[in-house]
Simulated scan of single mutants.
Amino acid sequence: MNKDEITKYLNNSKLDLDEVWIICGAAMVLHDLRESTSDIDLGCKKEYFEKLITNNKNIKTWPDGMRSIDFDENIEIFEEWNIKENNQISGVKVSSLKDLLNQKKGLNREKDKFDIKILEEKIKEKRIDI
């Protein structure tokens, strides 16, 4: 999914876009740091997550205790995936570059190493304090 496909998909979803924010790969796309992603990961507060799970039986509990649901075939929503700040891009809330960098470093996956390098370069270019 590219930037336009992500925002169109979210705008056509039944999600309350005021209650969620884009994280991980889709956030990289919306920040124009990647061309596309295979899915959309979102974060939300506990209260909204509780509303979502009343209609969804596919709750995952991760080793660190975090919970998520597969909202549909393209969207996974994580409870309390905290960010310090978000940016409004194309009408949706998106993790800031600093928060994205912290997320990617925290996940520490092999596939995130390239993203970390790109994020560090972009943050340096924009002169954002980390």
Rank of each mutant, 00 (worst) to 15 (best):
T61A: 09
S90D: 04
G106H: 11
F114Y: 06
I69C: 08
W21I: 15
A26K: 10
E35P: 02
F78E: 05
R34C: 00
L42D: 03
E79L: 13
S95Y: 09
V94L: 01
L107K: 09
D64Y: 13
N2I: 00
T54N: 08
I118L: 12
L100W: 00
F49R: 10
G91R: 06
K98V: 14
N11F: 14
T61S: 10
E50D: 15
I23F: 13
R34F: 03
Q103F: 12
L17M: 12
K3A: 02
S38A: 11
V94A: 01
T7P: 00
G65T: 11
D115R: 08
I130C: 13
I130T: 13
G25T: 07
K93P: 02
I59V: 12
S38V: 11
K98Y: 09
M28Y: 04
W62P: 02
S68C: 11
N56I: 13
I118T: 13
G65Q: 11
L10S: 04
L10T: 02
N11Y: 11
I40G: 03
F49T: 08
R109W: 05
S96K: 10
L30H: 09
N108P: 00
L15W: 08
N2S: 00
N55L: 03
I23G: 06
D4W: 07
C24G: 02
I22M: 08
I22V: 14
G25C: 07
V29F: 02
T37C: 04
L17R: 05
I6M: 03
E35Q: 11
T7A: 04
K104A: 00
N86E: 15
D129S: 15
S38K: 13
D64W: 10
L52T: 09
D39Q: 11
E121V: 05
K93H: 12
L119P: 01
L33Y: 12
I128R: 15
K57V: 12
N74C: 04
M66C: 11
K57G: 04
N82C: 14
E50F: 14
E85T: 15
W21G: 12
D72G: 07
I130D: 08
L100Y: 00
K126V: 07
L119I: 04
E121Y: 04
E5Y: 03
N74L: 10
I6G: 01
F78G: 02
D4R: 13
L15S: 07
S13Q: 05
I118H: 09
D32Y: 10
I40Q: 07
E73S: 15
I116W: 09
L30S: 04
L33G: 07
F71P: 08
I89S: 12
E79Y: 13
E73M: 14
F71T: 07
I75W: 06
E76Q: 14
V92G: 02
I83F: 14
F78H: 10
I130M: 14
N108E: 00
E5S: 01
K126P: 01
D99C: 08
E120A: 03
L100G: 00
I75C: 09
C44V: 15
E5Q: 12
R127S: 15
K98N: 13
N12C: 04
I75G: 08
S38M: 09
L100C: 01
R109V: 01
I59Y: 05
K45L: 15
I89G: 05
G65P: 10
Q103W: 11
G65C: 08
S38L: 12
H31P: 00
D112C: 02
M66A: 14
G106Q: 04
S38C: 01
I130P: 10
R67V: 15
G43C: 01
